[in-house]
């Protein structure tokens, strides 16, 4: 895919990104009630304090002007102050973001490691008990509410078997200097294998909770695409040449069958960001998702607004990456 096509596709994102900013702006602006009064509801604020906050938030200005300021500030990463933390919103988000990225990547790794082997086996052994078991497992995966699945895993692995911790990110006895903010990577960079093992034990249950439902979806995609590839003429030809079954699968079939899987995995990574809010709440994972949920109850609206915008932008960009990946891996597709 040429650079000009990528640039053209990127330019198509501009109206979508603009639309996303409008919606996020309107979320706080057009909701019923006065946001300032809602924010200060429990705090017995005086009329002067309410007026001052309204002025600070620019609520006394016309809508169009407020949107323009919101957009200009957002582009500069300025989302105002987090009321609760009394620090710029962007700093608070930056502090929590690595934990969420770490959990999302670990979950996607779980999803891929489960989905690809099972999807391939289900396709190769089509209509056998294994295929049917994968179909049933996939159905359960997409039907299970994430928060409940997390609780079941806690009950089994943390409460009954006492194999893994109930929640948190790192045991109290461990400390790792912050380099990337991702504890697993920082432990390795610092050469602390004990911390790495402890962090791995902490991330296991949240990553399974978030990753297994995605695995169900990826497995279906892998299976469907592998079934299609296995019926193609070039596979019959490769087998007729006398190549071993394993070689045909690994060298010829898998390479093509994984194109849709890679694409869906990129899109699904964006969707996992939403699931993070639930899983981080269940496991007390100190990431952005939990921060957003806490901020909702603390009526910390600037932070919620900034986080929703950030999630949406990441989702749009991951969809863009998925498009590019799909076209690059499969030259027959032209955007």
């Amino acid at each position: 895919m040429s650079y000009s096509r990528i640039a053209e596709r990127f330019l198509q994102l501009v109206p979508v990104l603009f639309g996303v900013s409008v919606i996020v702006f309107l979320m706080i602006t057009l909701t019923p009630g006065d946001p300032v009064e809602i924010m200060l509801a429990d705090q017995r604020a005086t009329e002067e304090q309410i007026a001052a906050l309204r002025r600070d938030m620019g609520l006394d200005k016309p809508l169009a002007e407020r949107f323009f300021h919101f957009l200009v500030n957002a582009v500069q990463g300025d989302f105002g102050l987090s009321f609760f933390h009394r620090r710029p919103v962007i700093d608070v988000i930056a502090e929590r973001l690595p934990a969420t990225i770490e959990l999302t990547l670990a979950s996607m790794l779980v999803a891929i490691m489960v989905a690809i082997p099972l999807g391939v086996m289900a396709a190769v052994r089509r209509d056998t008990w294994l295929d049917r078991a994968c179909t049933v497992g996939g159905l359960f995966g997409v039907s299970m509410p994430g928060f409940w699945f997390g609780i079941l895993l806690i009950l089994l692995f943390a409460v009954e078997l006492r194999l893994l911790p109930v929640g948190g990110r790192l045991g109290y006895d461990y400390e790792v200097a912050r380099i990337t903010g991702m504890v697993l990577i920082d432990s390795l960079l610092a050469g602390r294998l004990d911390s790495f093992r402890n962090a791995l034990a902490h991330i296991a249950l949240p990553a399974l909770t978030l990753g297994l439902p995605s695995a169900a979806l990826l497995m279906r995609v892998t299976r469907a695409s592998m079934v299609e590839v296995l019926a193609a003429d070039y596979i019959t030809f490769a087998e007729a040449k006398g190549l071993s079954r394993l070689r045909v699968l690994a060298r010829h079939a898998l390479k093509n069958a994984l194109i849709p899987t890679v694409t869906v995995a990129a899109i699904e990574t964006g969707a996992l960001l939403g699931g993070n809010m639930i899983v981080e709440t269940v496991f007390g994972w100190p990431g952005l998702g939990r921060l957003v949920v806490e901020s909702i109850f603390a009526r910390n609206y600037p932070l919620v607004q900034a986080a929703v915008l950030l999630y949406a932008l990441t989702y749009v960009l991951l969809n863009f990456v998925a498009d590019i990946l799909y076209t690059t891996l499969n030259p027959r597709v032209r955007l």
Binding site: P15, V20, I23, M27, G274, M277, Y311, A312, Y315
Partner: peptide, 24 residues
């Protein structure tokens, strides 16, 4: 179509949580 594209740009739960946060 642009409105649909824009709404699809939000992860569903994030969108619903954002709205519920504002609306109560």
């Amino acid at each position: 179509s642009r409105l649909v594209d824009t709404l699809l740009s939000f992860p569903y739960l994030v969108f619903a949580i954002g709205l519920m946060a504002m609306m109560g």
